[in-house]
Write a protein that binds this DNA or RNA. Structure first.
Length: 598
RNA sequence: CGGGGCGUGGCGCAGUUUGGUAGCGCGGGUGCUUUGGGAGCACUAGGUCGCAGGUUCGAAUCCUGUCGCCCCGACCA
């Protein structure tokens, strides 16, 4: 490919709406253009990168025995109603774009494909003899993100590889899940990326075991906790730890103290010399469930801990059997709307009476009380006295009415001890989620009636796994991980071109001729080469080559009269002057070395 | 959804406070010079200032509405 034919559109200025470096470089390098919020066009350079990633993904996923398909993006609502996800995905914070067609039928634009694939396989597969079976596809997905950002990182339309496996029993599912995990490691490896595997919450997709593949990056939206021995790593949403020891409260009697204006943990501690770990923090929140009910929550945590909303949602689900759509803090305004008297915010205790909810217009009339495990082990503590400007000091769980539901709803954080080895402390890093694998179990097959006949001749819902890779996100994450001041530095396996031949001065016939000859030889050797034949100054061409991140650059310039060219490696910035033949041989062997052996 | 900010040639921005009929840099085109790290000079094209109303002799500028986009937050009372 000649650069003059490439529609290369590099920008000198950094676009004002791009926040992170990878996003800026993608736009400056002419890889993508924004079409709308969270909607991007992949320009020719980008499409080449995506195709290279796709090829690697296909090879590795094919190698697991999976079959490639292409499923519809436009999906009837009734499928989603069957699985029970329509409401959650379209109401409130729902993420699915949806519409009504001219017949008045509801349709959704696929954010994921469990429903379609499950009902499809359920229709086609009848017997355990046809299992296991894995199908996958690479295509655009649509998600109406609350807030699209960072270019391709969180777009509303993005490219994803999704695979679904079907099994006749759990053991087979676990085997399939494991082999997909191995394939994922190979994929990220081959793409030249350092990926971390972490335990994860399965979130809206559901299911049991689940792991995420993270590209370590400061700009990542996820917080990861790892142990120094690397035996434990988890997304903070899921992470567990041994809480730090609390400061014991040396108080004999239970008493009420006046604490005006001390409605926060910080103020309370500052005024009275308390330690945050001696305080029981009581939060009142509201959970909207998929059956349309609003359930008030009373949550207790140690003063030095933070609520993990993901764990909370899971706790509510396992306690009530209902799916939580949304959790919000209860505001004075909401209380007024419910016709309730104001709560003593900032002074609420674990034993606040359900009476305060009596007469609520649309809420349940009792609190669902969930206490974090670590708060429950406090012998004596300080908590709100359920009256404005008053706290209870020296309280015990007996004096505040005992412990209702006790579970883990706390965020683990760095510096806390690991469960598997208490001598190790958790460390924090940020990551970009590029892959996620789940053992779904029978959740979807049950809901959609996708059954097979098992060895005993009985009908049984299919055992399922699902496995995603964000292709377009992965491409951008690669830049986040590989760049310098001058621009991108693509890992060679996913670079749009492997080498660029720069003719320094197009007016010099000798350079021009040698450059083209060199380029043609590279092409013949199977190298993905680019020839910069533009009538630009050499400096411009160097800047562009650096910016768009081509791994190897060959400069045919002033030394061409002696039959010499310059070989430049983008990643190491090393330059070598070589005679033409030697340069070609060196380059070809460097490039073919890094290609996988088929 | 809450808070903040921004919409002015293709891109990045100034001008808005104090209304007077639009400017700078980059980019584009032409010509000459230059030719190894985003060249120089000259000429040139390109904008009904997001959109719709209103105020005014006169609106990019003031008022009202509306649309779009960006950033922060949406968890500790």
């Amino acid at each position: 490919m000649y650069v003059s034919q490439l529609m290369l559109a590099t920008l000198r200025d950094t676009p004002s709406d791009a926040e992170i470096i990878s996003h800026q470089l993608l736009i400056r390098g002419g890889y993508i253009r924004r079409v709308g919020a969270g909607i991007y066009a992949y320009l020719p350079l980008m499409w080449r990168v995506l195709k290279k990633i796709n090829a690697i993904v296909k090879e590795e996923i094919d190698a697991t025995g999976a079959l490639e398909t292409l499923l519809p993006q436009l999906q009837p609502a009734e499928l989603w109603k069957k699985s029970g996800r329509w409401q959650g995905y379209t109401d409130g914070e729902g993420i699915m774009f949806h519409l009504i067609d001219r017949q008045g039928k509801e349709l959704g634009l696929g954010p994921t494909h469990e429903e379609v694939i499950t009902s499809l396989v359920g229709e086609i597969v009848n017997s355990y003899r046809q299992l296991p079976l894995t199908l996958y596809q690479i295509q655009s997905k649509f998600r109406d993100e609350i807030r699209p950002r960072f270019g391709l990182m969180r777009g509303r339309e993005f490219i994803m590889k999704d695979a679904y496996s079907f099994h006749s029993d759990e053991a087979s599912l676990q085997k399939g899940y494991a082999s997909m995990g191995v394939a994922y490691r190979k994929i990220f490896n081959r793409c030249g990326l350092e990926a971390l595997v972490v335990d994860a919450d399965s979130g809206a997709i559901g299911g049991s075991a689940s792991q995420e593949f993270m590209i370590a990056s400061e700009t990542g939206e996820d917080l990861i906790l790892t142990s120094p021995d690397n035996k434990y790593s988890a997304n903070q949403e899921k992470a567990v730890s041994v809480p730090t020891q609390e400061v014991p409260l040396a108080v004999e009697e239970t008493s009420i103290i006046r604490t005006p204006g001390q409605s926060t943990i910080d103020k309370l501690c500052a005024e009275n010399g308390f330690a945050p770990s001696q305080i029981v923090k009581s939060l009142v929140m509201l959970a909207k469930t998929d059956d349309g009910h609003s359930q008030p929550l009373l949550l207790c945590l140690r003063g030095d801990h933070e609520l993990n909303e993901v764990k909370l949602v899971n706790a509510i689900t396992s306690e009530t059997g209902k799916t939580v759509q949304e959790i919000t803090i209860i505001s004075p305004k909401q209380l007024a709307e419910q016709g309730l008297s104001p709560f003593p915010f900032g002074y609420i205790g674990p034993d606040i009476d359900d009476v305060v909810l009596k007469g609520a217009k649309s809420w349940n009339n009792n609190f669902l009380r969930i206490f974090d495990s670590s708060v429950c082990s406090l012998k004596k503590f300080i908590c709100g006295a359920n009256q404005n400007d008053k706290h209870l000091i020296g309280a015990t769980w007996e004096t505040v009415g005992g412990i209702p539901i006790k579970t883990d709803i706390r965020k683990a954080k760095s510096g806390e001890r690991c469960l598997h080895d208490p001598t190790q402390m958790l460390q924090e890093r940020r990551g970009i989620e590029v892959g996620h694998i789940f053992q779904l179990g029978q959740k979807y097959s049950e809901a959609l009636g996708a059954c097979f006949t098992n060895e005993r001749g009985l009908q049984e819902p299919l055992w399922m796994g699902c496995y995603g890779i964000g292709i377009s996100r992965l491409a951008q994450a690669a830049i986040e991980q590989h760049h310098d001041e001058a621009g991108m530095i693509w890992p060679i396996a996913i670079a749009p071109f492997e080498a660029i031949v720069v003719i320094a001065n197009m007016k010099d016939e000798q350079q021009k001729e040698l450059g083209k000859k060199f380029y043609n030889q590279l092409k013949e050797a199977g190298v993905d080469a680019l020839l910069d034949d533009r009538d630009e100054r050499a400096g411009v061409k160097f800047k562009d080559a650096d910016l768009i991140g081509i791994p190897w650059r060959v400069v045919v310039g002033r030394d061409s009269s002696e039959g010499k060219v310059e070989l430049f490696q983008r990643s190491s910035r090393k330059t070598e002057k070589l005679v033409t033949e030697e340069a070609i041989n060196t380059l070809i062997s460097e490039i073919t070395q890094t290609k996988p052996i088929d």
